[in-house]
Design a protein around this nucleic acid. Sequence first.
DNA 1: TTGTAAGCGTTATCAT
DNA 2: ATGATAACGCTTACAA
Lengths: 324, 324
Amino acid sequence: MTNIQEIARLAGVSTTTVSRVINQHPYVNETKRKEILKIIERLDYVPNSSAKSLKKGMTRIIGVLTGIYTNLSTSFIQAFNASAQKYGFNVMLFITNGDRQQELVALEMLRSKQLDALVCLFRTNEWDVIESYAKYGPIVTWQRLVSDMIPSVFMDQYQGYMLGLEYLYTKGYRRIANVFSSKGLNTPERIRAFNDFAFKYQLKADEFPDFHDKFTIFDGEEVARWWMKQTNRPDAIACSNDNVAAGLLTELRRSGFSTPDDIGILGFDNTDLAHLLDLTTIHYPANKQAENAVYIILDMLGQHVSEVHVLEFELIERKSTKSS
Amino acid sequence: MTNIQEIARLAGVSTTTVSRVINQHPYVNETKRKEILKIIERLDYVPNSSAKSLKKGMTRIIGVLTGIYTNLSTSFIQAFNASAQKYGFNVMLFITNGDRQQELVALEMLRSKQLDALVCLFRTNEWDVIESYAKYGPIVTWQRLVSDMIPSVFMDQYQGYMLGLEYLYTKGYRRIANVFSSKGLNTPERIRAFNDFAFKYQLKADEFPDFHDKFTIFDGEEVARWWMKQTNRPDAIACSNDNVAAGLLTELRRSGFSTPDDIGILGFDNTDLAHLLDLTTIHYPANKQAENAVYIILDMLGQHVSEVHVLEFELIERKSTKSS
DNA sequence: TTGTAAGCGTTATCAT
DNA sequence: ATGATAACGCTTACAA
């Protein structure tokens, strides 16, 4: 195993000088620097990262904990990864499939200093279990959580949903049905938004039954079939996400209906699918949330790099709602 | 930071004794052992893993490199993870999305000893790039590859596909159409299998056009629409995977056709979807491949734990083909 | 059964 | 501008 000492010996200098060259410190004679670099190249030398970690007290690895790997978490994780790399950190991904033990593996790695920090996208263990690990290193979550120990980059769905509803109202829609998911705590906030919205504009909040637990393309197709059977049809449907909106749109199309002529459809998340099908949807800045997570972690690790982004939903206007 | 020295000091023993207790070595006085464990508990002490890694020369982390996170890779990765954990290794997952740089990040971590080994499920860089890293630690692949440096746990698709075709023949199907994917090198092997099959039973190999690049549910639906339009219909369709088979089956159902009465459908991979829809399919022992990968890696790391499994495809008989 | 001390490969402090 | 030398926290001969 070739190490820094060997490089030093071959170059006829001390390990200090070699270390200086490697870490780009100033005050190294240019000739020596070149010579040392040449030897490093020749011996194909790389600093041993365990030794570095031990000395520095950090591994520069951040763990990301998620239950499943979905479209939504994908964009977060990719952005997080990119941002972390930018600051010299690598990401260790844990896909737990809801297994508590797997989650504990990650938490224990934080405890034993194999991880410098942890981002918790989804969790299976109770929050107090997770919180009890916060003393070992920064833990940041993507979920709604109010905690002194664990900061969150969560975004309140109330605002996002309200943004969509207000938009539909502007476009003349008055008979709006809701399709809710039920994963997590988003649904109650969306329901609250819809109730406030209906009250504000004096609309009947219970004109149509709410759908629940709908989040797949197939679910959207089911909603389409429901819609076609109605005599008293909604003029717009606000969907839990783009998948549902996509299923709804395509199934209606198969039966000869078209958007936005026959119905307005609103998606959520602004995924590739929404782009593909020209769905009006609500953009969820997962990438900025991810960057915020990195900023917060680095801040907690004592190296401030940037203020956090202000997070805002954005309405993406496409072809599944009226343009007038 | 509480370390082994502090424990030793508090217990009035040497660090050696503490280390012995931690690592469950024999020859430690039972009373002292108890006492030391109590102190460890009280101070919430955990050995620093960077120090351990440095001393032992290994991190006990294995990297898994994949392009995307699909149903197929999921079962491999889960099984790999479980098996690795069993032998005290953790898994660091790299989802590259086809980004070469990301792949190099993982390879470089192997080089700098942050990873003890690497499993390559998919790769974007050229094989010789990947091979050039094999000298830094064990690299095992899931893809077809003949290399001195990089062992493979690949399974030849020829056998699997032939198994399915022979089964269809047994069940009386004679007019079989193929739907191929084109990811990787599997398709040519499957084509070869079909040609050999057709020759063996004197069937027309080109009676129906081959489908290519079909691997999604939507693709399956497309095949269904093609099938319905034909006057001279195949009596069975061998699909590239369960997704295609599922799309085919459900789309036909929507139009009033049923399996196996109107057509036989054969899936591939034996995913959850196949189970859900009662698809006859071919089981691909990804979990055993994963375990083999672990065995091979540990072997290369100098600790033999088990002989590799013999890998065999298995036909899972369900309701999408005739039972007679 | 226990302890001493060397060493894993770095980086950082302090001289020079 | 460069070099001794002491950490970082652990394991492991070797001694006792």
